[in-house]
């Protein structure tokens, strides 16, 4: 009933709160294991935090069409040089089951289970994110989800 022929909103035939919870958990799990694997691969010496996950709107205000879960962390220091980041990310991500491709200069994207991994790196560090698909939830649920405080991914500090 909610699906529109004209591409209004997400891919699910309507999602609900339990779907959202499952999606958040799945995204967090994939993110924390992948971030840790990449961090170890580049011999990370520091991150911006232990990683954070939150809900973000899909589409646009004032009428967003859904919500997606975004998990992020950034590597701020490492003992592997940035010139090797691309190779390390590809290797570690593929070992985690992601199918990886280039998405622009110094940017890699991976796909797995409806999730999208993104690594953008440069001379001073690397941004890592895992996003879920856009969930087709009603507007008040979008508001409820995006008002929630961030979740800690619990990514272990580098050894």
């Amino acid at each position: 009933m909610m699906a529109s022929l004209f591409g209004c909103g997400g891919e699910g035939a309507g999602d609900d709160a339990p779907d959202a919870q499952r999606t958040a958990e799945k995204t967090r799990t994939a993110a924390s294991t992948t971030f840790e694997a990449i961090g170890q691969g580049v011999e990370a010496l520091g991150y911006t935090s232990t990683g954070a996950g939150r809900w973000a709107i899909c589409g646009q205000e004032p009428s967003p069409n859904g919500a997606q879960y975004v998990a992020e962390i950034a590597v701020t220091q490492s003992n592997v040089p940035p010139s090797k980041y691309g190779a390390v990310v590809r290797e570690q991500a593929e070992a985690q089951g992601w199918s990886v491709k280039e998405a622009g200069a110094d940017t890699l994207e991976g796909r797995k289970d409806g999730l999208t991994l993104r690594a953008q790196y440069g001379a001073a560090g690397m941004n890592l994110s895992v996003r879920s698909r856009c969930l087709d939830v009603p507007k008040d649920e979008i508001r409820r989800l995006t008002d929630q405080p961030k979740d800690d991914l619990g990514v272990a500090p580098p050894s």
Binding site: E72, A74, G125
Partner: peptide
């Protein structure tokens, strides 16, 4: 705060 984990890679 939403962007606390986002750095300029350069």
């Amino acid at each position: 705060d939403d962007y606390q984990d986002r750095i300029d890679p350069e």
